[in-house]
Design a binder for these strands. Structure first.
Length: 736
DNA sequence: CGTGGGCGGATTTTT
DNA sequence: TCCGCCCACG
C-alpha cells in the first residue's frame, strides 16, 4: 500500500511518532512542533495502514475548538466522514456515555447540565437551605471545594473531616449539594466525568464493552489532565487497548484547577514499556525567540526535558521596553502596532498578552484612541449572556420541570407578580419535602395568598402551554415560539434602547443557532441535544466577526495560538509572576511555564514590556521587573526606548551602582539597565549616589534623576525593596 | 417590584 | 479603580 501521502508532510520525529508500533505511546510535543498533525496522521495511519476500524478509535481533547479542528483535519485527510470515530472533549465524550447509559448512571433520562454559574447559584441555595451564613460559606469557595473533590474522584463518603470543623461543614455542603442535584435532575461539569468514570468501572459489562470497542485511545494535551480524567482514561484503556497520549510538560498551566503534570510521568509507570517520542523541531518561531523560551523554561526542575530548535534563522532580537507606568506601556505597544500596520501588516498579526484581565483596560483605551479595532478574548460567551440564559431556562424547564435553577431564573421574568415571599414559601416547602420547586408550586396553594397563588398557577400553566405548543415543531421554531410567548421578547423590548436591542438581536441569534444546529444520532430530542450543546459548548465566537483586529487575551487563553507579533506585557514581579503564586516553588514554576507559553506564541517578533509604576485597584505600586526577564540571555535582548533619545550605548557595564534587579539571578548580566538620559539640572538637593530615606521603602541610594518640576522623578535603589522610580513631588525623600 | 447607592472584593478558565 | 451584589427606598 502506498502510504507516502501520510508520511510525506512529516519530519523525521513526527514520522517516528505517527508510525510507532501499537503499544502505549507518549509523544512529547513542544510548542509549535506539529502536534495536531501527528495526532491526525496517526489516526490516518491506524485506519489505512494498520487496518483499524474508525469505529474502534477514540480521540479526546480538552476544548471544543481542538476537537473540531481534529475532526476537520481527519475528515480532510481520510476523505471520509469522521462520524464513526469518537472525537470529543472529555466532557463531551462523558456526556455522550451518560446519555446512552443514563439508567446505569442513575440519572433521569432528561438530565440537564449545570454550567459554572448555575452551579454556584444552586450551591448558594443549598447554603441558605442549611441556614448557613453565605458570607462565611462563600458559594465560590464551596463550589471550588466540591469540584476539587470530584476532580479527585472523591464522593462525600470518601471524605473525612480530620477533626477540622470547616472541612466537616464543607463535606456536609457537598452532600447536600449532591442531593439537590439529584432532586433537580442536573449534573455539573465535574459530575459528567466522575459519574462516567464510575459506571465504566462499576456497571456490569459496560467497561468491558467499551474497552473491547475502543482499541485505540488518543489523548491530546495530556499535561492538562486531572486525576479523574487520567483514571477515566485508564479504566477505558484497560490492559488490552493502546493509549497514545500527546502533551508537553512545559506547557502545563492549569495546576490551579486540578491538572496534574505528574500524570505524564505516572503514565510512563502505569503502562509498561511506554515508547517516548520528542517533537522538538519548531515551525513557528525564529531562533532567538526559541532560545529565549528554552532559556526561561530551563530554570524549571523535574522536566522530562526538551529543547526547541528551528531550521530557520535567528530573526530579530527580543525587544524589551521599560515603561514608566501602565499608560506608557500601552502607548508604546499601540505605537508599535501602528508601525506594523503602516508597513502593511495586518492588525490581527498583533497579540497583546497579559497575566490578568484587569490589564486589558488601558490597552483598550489607547487602541480606542488610536482607532485601531481590537478584540478582547475571554469575555462573556454567547450562551453565557443573560438573555440567552433566560431563554434557555424556559427551554430547560420545558424539558425538565424539576430544574430549580431554571425555575427560579424565569419564574418572575418578565415580572408576573411572583415575589421573594412567594419564592421563600416554595423553597421552604421544597426543602421540607425534598421536592423540586415545580412540584412544590402545586402543593403550596394554601400557604400562599390568593393573588400569589393565582400568579404562580399562571406561570405553571404558561410552561405547560409552551410545552404543548412546541411539540412537534422544528427546533428553531420551538426556540422562537418560547422567546415570544414567554414574554421574554416583550420584556427586553421595554429595556433601554440600545441595550434591549442588542439583547433582542442575541435572542434572534439564538434562533439562528437553533436553525443551524445539527443534532447527533443519540436518542435525545433535538431540544435536549441543543440545550446540552449550549452548556458544553458555550459558543466561542457565535457571532464572530471576521474583522481584522488586534488580539488581546490572557496568557492562559493564548495557549495553542500563534501570532507574528507578540507583546508580553506587565512583566513585573508580583504581577507576573503573580504575587499569589510565588510563595511556593510549584506556583513559581507554573508561572514560568506560563511565560514560556507566552514567548512561544510569537512567530517573528517578541516584545517584553514592564512598567516601573502601575496603578491597579486604584493604588500605585512599584514592582521590580519580572525575574523572568533576567532569565532571557542578554545577547538575545535589545532594549527599546523610543521616548528618550539615547546618546550613549544602552548597555552599561556592571560598574553602575546597584545594577541589576532584585530577584534576578546574579550574573544574569542583561544589558537592559542604564542608558537613561541624565538631566543637567538635578532637581532639588538630590545628587546621584546620594543616600536617602523613604517612609515606606527605607534607605537607599539615588541612581538616577530626570524630569523637572512636577514631573521630576528619581530612581532609588532601596536596600530592602530594590530599585524604584519615584515622583519627586510625592516621594518625600529625606537626605541621610 | 425595580432601581440606585453603598459595600466588599479583585489571578489565571474550560467544560 | 471598578464591578457585582445586597438592601433600602420610591
Amino acid at each position: 500500500m502506498d502510504v507516502s501521502h501520510i508520511l510525506a508532510p512529516l519530519n523525521d520525529a513526527q514520522r517516528q511518532a505517527v508510525t510507532a508500533p501499537l503499544k502505549p505511546t507518549l509523544v512529547l510535543a513542544g510548542a509549535g512542533s506539529g502536534k495536531t498533525r501527528v495526532l491526525t496522521h496517526r489516526v490516518e495511519w491506524l485506519v489505512q495502514v494498520e487496518g483499524v476500524s474508525p469505529h474502534g478509535i477514540l480521540a479526546v481533547t480538552f476544548t471544543n475548538k481542538a476537537a473540531a479542528e481534529m475532526r476537520h483535519r481527519i475528515e480532510q485527510q481520510l476523505g471520509l466522514p469522521s462520524a464513526p470515530l469518537w472525537i470529543g472533549t472529555f466532557h463531551g465524550v462523558c456526556h455522550r456515555l451518560l446519555r446512552m447509559h443514563w439508567r446505569e448512571a442513575g440519572l433521569p433520562q432528561g438530565f440537564q447540565i449545570l454550567d459554572g454559574e448555575d452551579q454556584q447559584r444552586l450551591i448558594k441555595k443549598v447554603i441558605r437551605g442549611l441556614n448557613l451564613d453565605d458570607t462565611r460559606w462563600v458559594p465560590r469557595e464551596v463550589a471550588w471545594f466540591i469540584n476539587a473533590q470530584k476532580d479527585e474522584g472523591l464522593r462525600p463518603r470518601h471524605l473525612k473531616d480530620e477533626g477540622d470543623p470547616t472541612r466537616r461543614q464543607m463535606i456536609k455542603l457537598y452532600e447536600a449539594y449532591e442531593e439537590a442535584c439529584r432532586r433537580n435532575g442536573v449534573v455539573d461539569f465535574a459530575e459528567l466525568l466522575l459519574r462516567s468514570y464510575e459506571i465504566l468501572k462499576d456497571a456490569p459489562g459496560l467497561g468491558d464493552h467499551y474497552r473491547s470497542r475502543f482499541r485505540h485511545v488518543l489523548v491530546d494535551e495530556f499535561q492538562d489532565t486531572n486525576t479523574i480524567q487520567y483514571e477515566w482514561m485508564k479504566v477505558l484503556v484497560g490492559s488490552a487497548s493502546v493509549p497514545y497520549v500527546v502533551g508537553d510538560d512545559d506547557q502545563s498551566i492549569y495546576r490551579w484547577r486540578g491538572a496534574r503534570v505528574e500524570n505524564l510521568q505516572q503514565y510512563r509507570k502505569d503502562f509498561r514499556d511506554v515508547q517516548l517520542f520528542r517533537l522538538e523541531q519548531n515551525y513557528r518561531s525564529t531562533g532567538n525567540i526559541l532560545d529565549a523560551a528554552n532559556a526561561i523554561i530551563g530554570n524549571n526542575s523535574g522536566r522530562i526535558g526538551k529543547k526547541l530548535w528551528t531550521s530557520e534563522g535567528k530573526g530579530s532580537a527580543i525587544r524589551l521596553f521599560r515603561a514608566y507606568n501602565e499608560r506608557d506601556e500601552a502607548e508604546f505597544v499601540v505605537n508599535k502596532i501602528r508601525e506594523w500596520i503602516a508597513q502593511g501588516g495586518n492588525r490581527r498579526d498583533n497579540a497583546i498578552l497579559y497575566r490578568s484581565n484587569a490589564q486589558s483596560r488601558v490597552f483598550e483605551e489607547y487602541l480606542l484612541a488610536a482607532r485601531i479595532p481590537y478584540r478582547v478574548y475571554g469575555g462573556l460567551r454567547f450562551f453565557e449572556r443573560q438573555e440567552i440564559k433566560d431563554a434557555l431556562a424556559y427551554l430547560r424547564l420545558i424539558s425538565n420541570r424539576d430544574d430549580d435553577a431554571s425555575f427560579e431564573r424565569v419564574v418572575n421574568l418578565p415580572t408576573r407578580g411572583i415575589g421573594a415571599r412567594t419564592l421563600e414559601v416554595l423553597r421552604a416547602h421544597s426543602r421540607a419535602h425534598s421536592k423540586s420547586m415545580w412540584q412544590s408550586a402545586f402543593e403550596c396553594n394554601d400557604e400562599l395568598g390568593t393573588k400569589a397563588a393565582s400568579c404562580l398557577q399562571a406561570f405553571l400553566t404558561l410552561i405547560e402551554k409552551l410545552d404543548a405548543e412546541t411539540q412537534g415543531l422544528p427546533l428553531h421554531e420551538q426556540v422562537d415560539h418560547v422567546i415570544q410567548a414567554s414574554g421574554l421578547a416583550g420584556h427586553y423590548q421595554k429595556e433601554k434602547a440600545d441595550k434591549g436591542e442588542a439583547r433582542l438581536e442575541n435572542l434572534e441569534e439564538l434562533v439562528s443557532a437553533a436553525r443551524g444546529f445539527e443534532p447527533e444520532d443519540d436518542g435525545m430530542t433535538p431540544l435536549m441535544a441543543f440545550l446540552s450543546h449550549a452548556v458544553l459548548e458555550s459558543g466561542e465566537g457565535q457571532a464572530e466577526e471576521w474583522e481584522d483586529c488586534v488580539q488581546m487575551m490572557t496568557l492562559h487563553s493564548a495557549k495553542g495560538l500563534e501570532f507574528p507579533v507578540v507583546f508580553l506585557c506587565g512583566l513585573e514581579d508580583g504581577l507576573f509572576p503573580h504575587q499569589r503564586s510565588v510563595t511556593d516553588m510549584h506556583g513559581l514554576e507554573e508561572e514560568r511555564r506560563l511565560c514560556y507559553v507566552g514567548c512561544t506564541r510569537a512567530m517573528r517578533h517578541l516584545y517584553l514590556t514592564y512598567a516601573e509604576q502601575r496603578r491597579m485597584h486604584g493604588i500605585d505600586s512599584y514592582g521590580a521587573p519580572s525575574r523572568f526577564i533576567a532569565e532571557v540571555p542578554a545577547r538575545l535582548v535589545e532594549e527599546v526606548r523610543p521616548k528618550v533619545q539615547v546618546s550613549r550605548p544602552a548597555y552599561v557595564p556592571s560598574s553602575r551602582p546597584g545594577g541589576g534587579y532584585p530577584g534576578s539571578r546574579p550574573n544574569a548580566g542583561n544589558g537592559y539597565v542604564g542608558g537613561r538620559r541624565f538631566q543637567d539640572d538635578t532637581p532639588g538637593s538630590l545628587k546621584l549616589g546620594q543616600r536617602v530615606r523613604h517612609a515606606k521603602f527605607g534607605d537607599g541610594v539615588v541612581l538616577n534623576l530626570e524630569g523637572q518640576g512636577s514631573n521630576a522623578r528619581v530612581q532609588v535603589n532601596f536596600e530592602r525593596q530594590g530599585t524604584k522610580w519615584l515622583m519627586m513631588g510625592y516621594a518625600n525623600l529625606q537626605v541621610v
